[in-house]
Computed example of a mutant assay.
Amino acid sequence: MRVQSRSLVCGKRHSFDIAKHGYVNLLSRTHATKYDKQLFTARSAISADGFFAPMIEAVYAAIARAVGPTVNGLKMLDAGCGEGSLLSDIQRRLMEHSHGKHLGVGIDIAKEGISLASRRGVRDSAASRALKGYRDHEALDTIWCVADLANCPFANQSFDVILNVLSPANYTEFQRLLEKDDFLVKVVPNHAYLQQLRGLFYNQVDKNVYSNEQTLALFRRQFELLDVQYIQYEYVLNRRQLRQLIEMAPLAWGVSKERIQEVIDCDQMKITFDYSILIGKKNSQ
């Protein structure tokens, strides 16, 4: 594909417009999703307050161990990137420890998430240029696309690393997009993830006892599992942060408004964040 005016155009003259803030919608039709602007705005706020920072640091460390901490020119796909904060944070950490740019590509089927990611990218770029001593290489090299994970609009073997964080996976596409011996980093919640909310929302029913065993088993069948990192920590959230956490978590879908309000009315609550970080290598077959 090539850029023509404000569109991407392929050899068969299919055209995809580039939005005002720089993202591209590569879906052939609209997909209905429950992930709306309110959810992604809440997730962005929670991320900005640092609640995902220990997990993000662990993901960066996993990438650095897999590809080497000073690697340059890494091509990285965040599959199910949401509002893009994780991909941007990982790129910044890579830039801090290397001398070249790393291409980040974020895709999500939810247009609202990609729109927010690209808008923040424009603001971040403008803020960087306003800083004294700004250098061109300090800007993030990122592409944001509305796209379907089950039918990724990229050529075979396009990426060195795929990130798949708290999001569904499509291992057939991941295998296609990675070269031999390249890496997949997948983050899944463990049983204690948001356990306080599970207990309040669902009392002592099965829905508050989470297991990721099936997810782990599927990963092992599709990729060579090189390592698993476990990370668990707690934060005390105030009332505003509790509301944002509930707004961003599908866990609250189907819970009554009354029950949700009871939780939000708490002045503060200690919340557990609990993850497994799976590092896998594409099978050589």
Rank of each mutant, 00 (worst) to 15 (best):
Q4H: 01
Q4G: 00
Q4M: 02
S5R: 08
S7H: 02
S7Q: 06
F16C: 01
D17Q: 05
D17R: 03
A19E: 11
A19G: 10
H21A: 08
L26G: 11
L27R: 12
R29V: 00
R29W: 04
A32K: 13
Y35S: 05
D36A: 06
K37D: 15
Q38R: 10
L39F: 00
F40V: 03
A45T: 05
I46C: 05
G50H: 14
M55E: 04
I56L: 02
I56P: 00
E57P: 01
A58Q: 04
A58I: 00
Y60W: 11
A61E: 05
I63M: 13
R65F: 01
V67Y: 07
K75F: 14
L77W: 10
C81N: 05
E83T: 03
G84Y: 06
L87V: 07
L87Y: 08
S88C: 10
D89E: 15
Q91V: 01
M95V: 00
H97N: 15
H97E: 14
G100N: 02
G100D: 01
L103Y: 10
I107L: 09
I107Q: 04
D108H: 04
D108S: 03
E112Q: 09
E112K: 02
A117E: 10
R119L: 13
R119G: 03
R123P: 01
R123W: 09
R123N: 13
A127G: 05
R129Q: 15
R129E: 14
Y134G: 08
R135D: 06
I143N: 13
I143F: 13
V146F: 09
A147R: 06
A150R: 14
P153F: 11
F154T: 12
F154E: 04
F154I: 10
N156H: 06
D160M: 08
V161D: 07
V161A: 13
N164W: 02
V165F: 06
L166S: 09
A169T: 11
N170D: 15
T172M: 05
T172F: 10
R176H: 04
L178I: 03
E179I: 01
K180W: 04
K180H: 12
F183M: 03
L184D: 03
V188Q: 06
P189G: 07
H191C: 03
Y193W: 15
Q195L: 10
Q196V: 13
L200S: 14
L200W: 13
D206Y: 07
N208G: 03
N208C: 15
V209L: 14
E213S: 15
A217R: 14
A217D: 15
F219T: 13
F219M: 09
F219E: 07
R221T: 09
R221M: 10
Q222V: 01
E224V: 12
L226E: 11
L226W: 01
V228D: 00
V228F: 04
Q229W: 03
Y230R: 14
Y230C: 12
Q232P: 00
Y233G: 11
Y235C: 15
Y235T: 14
N238P: 02
N238K: 07
N238G: 10
Q241S: 11
L242V: 05
L242A: 05
L245K: 13
A249E: 02
P250H: 12
P250Q: 08
A252E: 02
V255I: 12
K257G: 00
R259W: 01
E262I: 08
V263H: 11
V263D: 05
C266S: 09
C266N: 13
K270S: 09
K270L: 10
D274L: 07
Y275W: 07
I277K: 01
L278N: 04
L278F: 07
I279E: 08
